[in-house]
Amino acid sequence: MTKADIVEIVFEKVGFSKKDVGHVIEEIFEVVKNTLEQGEKVKISGFGNFTIRQKRARRGRNPQTGTEITIDQRRVMTFKASQLLKKAINSSQAPQQPSA
C-alpha cells in the first residue's frame, strides 16, 4: 500500500476531490514529521507512537572492508505499535483466500 492507495480509500469514504484529499494527507504526514523533527513524540491512539531517540557515538566497523569507523551520535525515529494494532495483525490468522 502506498500513499496513492490511501488517497483512494479516503476519497471513497469522504467524497472530496482526490486532489484535496491528497493535499490533506500530505499535510498530515508533514505535521507529524515537523513534530518529530522538534524532538517531540507523536502518539496516535489505536495505531502507535512515533518517538525520537538519541543515539550516542560508537565505534563500528564497515562490514564490507572491516575498517574501524566512528559512528557519530545521531537521532533516530522509532515506532511502537499499539496493543490494538498488534491484536489486529494477529487476529487475521489465515491469509485471506482471494475471492474469485
Binding site: 500500500m1 492507495d5 490511501i6 480509500i9 479516503v10 469514504k13 469522504v14 484529499v21 490533506v24 494527507i25 498530515i28 496516535i44 489505536g46 495505531f47 490494538l84 494494532l85 489486529a88 495483525i89 487476529s91 487475521s92 491469509p95 485471506q96
Partner: peptide, 17 residues
Amino acid sequence: VIVDTLFDSMSASLSKG
C-alpha cells in the same frame, strides 16, 4: 475523519499482511 481513515486503512493493510 481523514486522519482516522488514514490510520485505519494502514492498520487494515498491515492486518492483511
